[in-house]
């Protein structure tokens, strides 16, 4: 399905180093926001509930609760407006899509934390911050 000529067009728009994160992780998405001629970075904090697509079309969905109301935001992973994705907490999940979180209320919303060895965590941190 992938056309070499299309990839040629997409190439300059792809990021060379992608942030490393997984489904279920609680992340801070640093997004660039342009207001008039000013530019600033806003943080969107939440749980990664889905990741889809490939290449320049790849996107991920982050869900958070604001004032007791669920808010979801989709980001194109290759978008220059997504400056970085920092992992706050890693999640232990068994699905690729966490849409079931939408129906959960209160404490049940929580994703079980994935406990990792200190060394592994440091390595992941390094990989993440390099992106």
């Amino acid at each position: 399905m992938r056309q070499p000529l299309i990839e040629l067009v997409e190439q300059p728009y792809l990021k060379t180093r992608l942030p490393v994160f997984h489904i279920g992780d609680t992340v801070d998405v640093l997004c660039r926001i342009v207001e008039g001629d000013k530019e600033r970075v806003q943080v969107f904090n939440g749980v990664v509930i889905a990741r889809r697509g490939a290449g320049i079309n790849e996107s991920f969905t982050v869900r958070r609760i604001v004032a007791n109301e669920g808010v979801e935001r989709k980001f194109l992973i290759h978008s220059p407006n997504v400056v970085n994705v920092k992992i706050r907490r890693r999640g232990k999940v068994r699905r690729a899509k966490l849409f079931y979180l939408r129906h959960r209320i209160g404490k049940a919303r929580k994703v079980r934390e994935l406990r990792v060895h200190k060394r592994e965590a440091q390595e992941a941190e390094l990989a993440g911050s390099a992106a």
Binding site: Q3, L5, I6, V9, E10, Y13, R32, V34, I56, N57, L76, H78, S79, P80, N81
Partner: peptide, 21 residues
């Protein structure tokens, strides 16, 4: 017509495009 994809414009927004050889 080769196919469609998307590129990023100067504002950072995704823009739908068609690639034609």
């Amino acid at each position: 017509k080769i196919g469609m994809t998307q590129v990023v414009d100067e504002r950072g927004a995704a823009e739908p495009v068609t690639v034609v050889k």
